[in-house]
Design a binder for these strands. Structure first.
Lengths: 339, 339
DNA sequence: CTGAAAGCGCTTACAG
DNA sequence: CTGAAAGCGCTTACAG
C-alpha cells in the first residue's frame, strides 16, 4: 500500500548525495553555484540530477534561507468591468516574469478597504514582497506594508514619492492626444472621466491640463466631467458638452466612450465631422464601433512583467528606480481628424 | 545596525517556550490542539501568544508536515472579455474561502496549451492541490495533474466522470429559459453561442436541446449557431435566423446579445414584439440595454468558494461529491414576453 | 500531562 | 575543493 501511494515520491538532496558518494553540501553547491566546487563533481551532480529528475524542495530551501520565493499580488476584489482587462493582462505579465525567475505569485483580493488578507499573508511569512495594483487614492495596504518594512512596489501611480512605482504613462499619453487635437485647431475639447477615487483617473486629467498649458490655450473647467461612473452621469455630461459646443471629446475609458457615441448618434451628431472622439483603453468595443475610435493603447502585460522584475530586484537588495514610466501608443482611427 | 534591521523580528516557538518555561512541544500542542495538554498550560500559552502577537511560521510547519497550505488556481492567460467577470468573481470566492481556512492561493496563468508553469509549481512542491477553472474541451492540465496524483478539482464541467467538478448549472438554466419560451408558444427559437472549444458552451447547448425534448417540440439544427466568436459571424447568424422566421433568440453571452440587439435594431425589428431575446451572463450591458434583456444569472463568487471548499476537503482526505451543481436565477426583463 | 530528540529538506559558516 | 555539523522553525512518535 505504502509503496503505491508513494509511487512518485520525490527524491531528496540526500538521495542524490548518497548515490554519488558525496555530501549534501557538495550537491547543494553544485546546484546553487555558490562556494568552491570542482567542475568535474559539479557536472557529475548536475548530470545525475538531470537524469533522475531531481527538483530541490523550494520550501525547505526557503526555510533555510529565510526566503519564500513567493510574491503577493494584491488586486481589488470588486473592480469594475472596465478595469478587468488591465488586471488580467498585467497579471499574466507578472506571473510569467515571476515564473522565469523561479518565483511564484500568491493572490490576495482585497474587499472594500480591509487589508486583513494581506496582513494574514505577511504575518504568515508567506511572501518576500508584494505588488500593489492600481490603487485608490486612499490605500491602507500601503500603510500596512510600510509598517512591516516589507519590499513592495505599486503597479500604478502615487503622489507618495517614497513608494516604488511603475506605471504606464497615462499623463503623457493623454497629453499627446489632447495636444494633437489642440494642434489641429480643435480647441474646445471636453473630458469625461471615471471615479476620482482612482489615482489613474487623476493622472489622466493632469495630461489633459498639460496639453492646454503647452498649447497656450485657456483651460475651461466647465468642459471637464469627472466621477462619471454611471451611464446617466455620462449622458448628462455629453449633453452639457454639446451645449458648450465642443469640437472634441476625450473619454477615459471604452465604456464611457461607447455611451458617448451612443448619445451622439441618438442626437444625429456626426463623428468626427461635428464632434471628434477619442478614448483610453483600446478594446474591441472601440475597434469595432462605428466609427472606429482613436485611442491610447498601453501594454499592460509588459507593465506587469516590469513591475515584477523591479520587485524582484528590490527583494534581492539591488538599487531600483523609484519611479518608472512605460510608454503608450496612440492609434488613430476614424473618430478623429488630426494627422 | 543589525538591531535596526530586525526591528520587528518575528518571535518563534522557542521564544515563547522559554518565556513560559515549557518545551516547544507543549507550545506546539497548545496551538494545534493535538495531543494531551492540561487546560491550564494551554490557556497560559495561548494567552502569551495572543499578548505577544506570535504567529507560527507556516513554512516551517508545512515542512514538518509535508504540507504547504497553498492551493494553485489555474486560469487561462488569454481569456476573452466576456469571461473576465467569471474569473474575477470566482477568484474572489476562492481567495476568501482559502483565507478562512488558512490557506493561500497561488496564481498560475497558462498560455496557449502549455502547462509548463503548473508543472513547475507542482515540481517545486509549492501546493497541496489545484483548482482548474473552466476548461477547454482538450485540457492538458488534467492529464498532468492525474499523472502526479495531486488533488484537484475542476471549476467547470467535464465529461470525464473521474475528475472532481463543481459548476453552475448552465444546462438546467438554459433548459428552463428555453422551456419557458416553448411553453409560451414560441417554438421557433434560435441559439447563438461562442466557441465550441469551451465545454461550457457545449453544456449550454445541451440545455437548449433538453428543453425541446421535454416540450415535445422538434429541434431544428438550422436554428443553432455555434462558434460565433466574432461580430461578423454573429451578424450572419442573426440574419439567417431572421430569414428562418424565428420568434426568439437565446444568446450564450452578453456580448453576443448586444450584437444581436444591434442588428435587430438596424433592421427595425422590434424586441420583444417581433423577436424575443434572452441571454446568459447578466451584466450591465444587458441590464442597461434597450430593451433590458432577460437573462440567466449565476453566482460566480459562490461557485469559487464552494470549489475551494471541496478541494480543501479533498486535500484533507475527506469524501467529497464527484460532481456538484450550483443553481441559477432567471431574471425576466422586457426583452421577453413569457410569465 | 510533559519533554528530549529526531526529523522535514535544505543552506552555510567553519574546518580541513 | 569537500564534508560534518548546526541551523531554519516547526511537528511528532516515543518515553516517562
Amino acid at each position: 500500500m505504502e509503496t503505491f501511494r508513494n509511487g512518485n515520491k520525490k527524491i531528496t538532496i540526500l538521495d542524490v548525495a548518497e548515490a554519488l558518494n558525496v555530501s549534501k553540501t557538495t550537491v547543494s553547491r553544485a546546484i546553487s553555484g555558490k562556494g568552491r566546487i570542482s567542475e568535474d563533481t559539479k557536472q557529475k551532480v548536475l548530470a545525475y540530477i538531470e537524469a533522475n529528475d531531481y527538483k530541490p524542495n523550494v520550501i525547505a530551501k526557503g526555510l533555510a534561507q529565510k526566503k519564500t520565493y513567493n510574491i503577493a499580488l494584491v488586486i481589488p476584489g470588486d473592480c469594475n468591468l472596465v478595469e478587468m482587462p488591465f488586471f488580467q493582462n498585467s497579471m499574466q505579465g507578472i506571473c510569467e516574469e515571476a515564473s522565469a525567475n523561479d518565483y511564484d505569485v500568491m493572490l490576495v483580493t482585497t474587499t472594500g478597504s480591509s487589508s486583513a488578507n494581506l496582513e494574514r499573508m505577511i504575518a504568515n511569512n508567506k511572501v518576500d514582497g508584494v505588488i500593489l495594483s492600481r490603487s485608490l487614492v486612499k490605500d491602507r495596504n500601503v500603510a500596512l506594508l510600510k509598517a512591516q518594512s516589507i519590499p513592495f512596489v505599486l503597479m500604478g501611480t502615487s503622489r507618495d514619492s517614497k513608494i516604488l512605482q511603475v506605471d504606464n504613462d497615462h499623463r503623457a499619453g493623454c497629453g499627446e492626444l489632447v495636444g494633437r487635437m489642440l494642434g489641429a485647431g480643435i480647441t474646445r475639447v471636453g473630458l469625461i472621466g471615471g471615479s476620482k477615487n482612482y489615482v489613474v483617473n487623476r493622472t489622466r486629467r493632469q495630461g489633459y491640463e498639460d496639453a492646454f498649458k503647452n498649447a497656450g490655450v485657456q483651460l475651461e473647467t466647465a468642459l471637464i466631467f469627472e466621477d462619471c461612473d454611471k451611464p446617466d452621469k455620462i449622458e448628462a455630461a455629453v449633453e452639457k458638452l454639446i451645449r458648450e459646443n465642443v469640437q472634441g471629446i476625450v473619454c477615459m475609458d471604452d465604456v464611457i466612450c461607447s455611451v458617448v457615441l451612443q448619445v451622439l448618434a441618438e442626437k444625429d451628431i456626426l463623428v468626427p465631422q461635428q464632434i471628434q472622439a477619442a478614448s483610453f483603453y483600446d478594446s474591441t468595443l472601440l475597434k469595432n464601433s462605428k466609427p472606429a475610435v482613436t485611442s491610447l493603447v498601453f501594454d499592460d502585460k509588459a507593465l506587469g512583467a516590469l513591475t515584477c522584475r523591479i520587485l524582484l530586484h528590490c527583494i534581492q537588495g539591488e538599487e531600483v528606480e523609484a519611479k518608472t514610466l512605460l510608454g503608450y501608443e496612440l492609434v488613430i482611427r476614424e473618430s478623429t481628424l488630426f494627422g
